[in-house]
Amino acid sequence: MDELIDKLKGEIIEQLNLEDLKKEDIDNDGPLFGEGLGLDSIDALELIVLLEKNYGIKVANPADGKKIFQSVRTMAQYIQDNKK
């Protein structure tokens, strides 16, 4: 799981153009939206694309996004549970 979390942080930084952030700046359990990384609605769409492009996972129900994208750890868990 730790390896996947580390990889995911790199992918998030690249996909969302968070050039001023390093992997160690992202808390595994910190919120991605709001007070955490301060991501916005376009970033949410980018994260959905990231899951599909890099892991072949489609988020079928947008309502699930709130739970999946809570933190890097919840994203990694979702990937682990749903990767084909």
Binding site: L16, I42, D43, L45, E46, V49, E52, K53
Partner: peptide
């Protein structure tokens, strides 16, 4: 086919 929302905007 992976259009990027952040690019499209």
């Amino acid at each position: 086919y992976f259009p990027s929302p952040a690019v499209f905007v």
